[in-house]
Computed example of a mutant assay.
Amino acid sequence: MSDTSILVLVGSLRAGSTNRQLAEAAIGVAPAGVDLTIYEGLADIPFYNEDIDVEGSVPAAATAFRDALAAADAVLVVTPEHNGTIPAVLKNAIDWASRPFGASPITGKPLAAIGSAYGQFGGVWAQDEARKALTIAGASVLEEIKLAIPGSVVRFAEIHPKDDAEVVGQLEAVVQGVVAAVSEKAAA
């Protein structure tokens, strides 16, 4: 059993996405005692609807997602940018994670948002939107932890992020920052 469990939410559903590869690379740099796990069920969660978010009616996929969030010590969001903002699948996950408001499984949980995008800014708009929505949802967003990799389609056309020394170093710092936030929360 690991000392620190970090749930990774990848905003792209595409199997070969650079953001999924970035998440895989983050898993590879996790130090001993730290377990990063990509949540594989985001595509299965129905669109948030308050009519089905009642005891006895919550879809199994939403319950499984909330349970995974509750079991994690922290969350790492790895997102592309879709039309200048976060992908719908990630926004939907945030909506499910935010309820019940104030007592949701994400309330107070350390969370960092990073990612890559084809454009010249590396998806910073999507990351900022994710941070904003997750702050409102109740997460303890780690504003100081940032990583935006521009030109991802070209940069990672022939190399996986795990083989890019600069990216590996940046991911190590991200993971260390999240782990430090978990330790600080536990000590408080």
Rank of each mutant, 00 (worst) to 15 (best):
R155W: 00
P150I: 13
S152M: 05
S116H: 07
P105I: 12
V89M: 05
V167A: 04
N92F: 15
K132T: 04
P161Y: 03
A133C: 06
V89E: 04
V154M: 01
Q120S: 12
G102N: 13
E158I: 02
K132H: 06
A165I: 07
A173M: 10
V124C: 03
D95N: 09
I106E: 06
P110N: 05
V168E: 14
G122C: 14
G122W: 11
G151S: 05
K162C: 04
A93L: 14
G115W: 09
E143V: 03
V124P: 00
I94M: 10
I106V: 11
A148Y: 02
T107G: 04
A139Y: 12
A157I: 00
K132I: 01
P110G: 05
V153P: 06
Q120Y: 05
A126Y: 05
A137P: 02
A112C: 06
N92A: 07
G108Q: 13
S140A: 08
G123W: 14
F121I: 12
G151E: 03
A126L: 09
K146L: 11
W96C: 10
E143R: 12
E166L: 03
E129I: 07
D164F: 12
N92T: 12
L171E: 06
E129G: 13
G102Q: 12
I136W: 14
P110H: 08
S140Q: 10
R99A: 04
H160K: 04
K132Y: 03
Q120A: 12
T135V: 02
N92D: 05
W96I: 15
L142F: 00
A148E: 12
I94H: 08
L111I: 03
G169P: 09
D128Q: 07
A117K: 03
S152Y: 02
E172Q: 14
R131W: 01
R99C: 11
I159S: 15
P150R: 05
L147H: 02
P150G: 09
W96M: 13
Q127C: 07
E172N: 11
D163M: 13
A93M: 14
T135W: 01
T107Y: 10
E166G: 13
S116T: 06
A126R: 02
L134T: 06
H160P: 05
Y118G: 13
L142Y: 00
A137E: 01
I106T: 10
A93P: 08
P100W: 06
A157H: 03
I106S: 14
L142D: 00
V168R: 15
K91T: 00
K91R: 06
V124I: 12
G115E: 08
K132P: 00
G115H: 13
G151N: 07
S104N: 12
A133D: 10
A117R: 10
R155M: 00
A133Y: 14
V167Y: 15
R131C: 04
K91S: 01
Y118T: 07
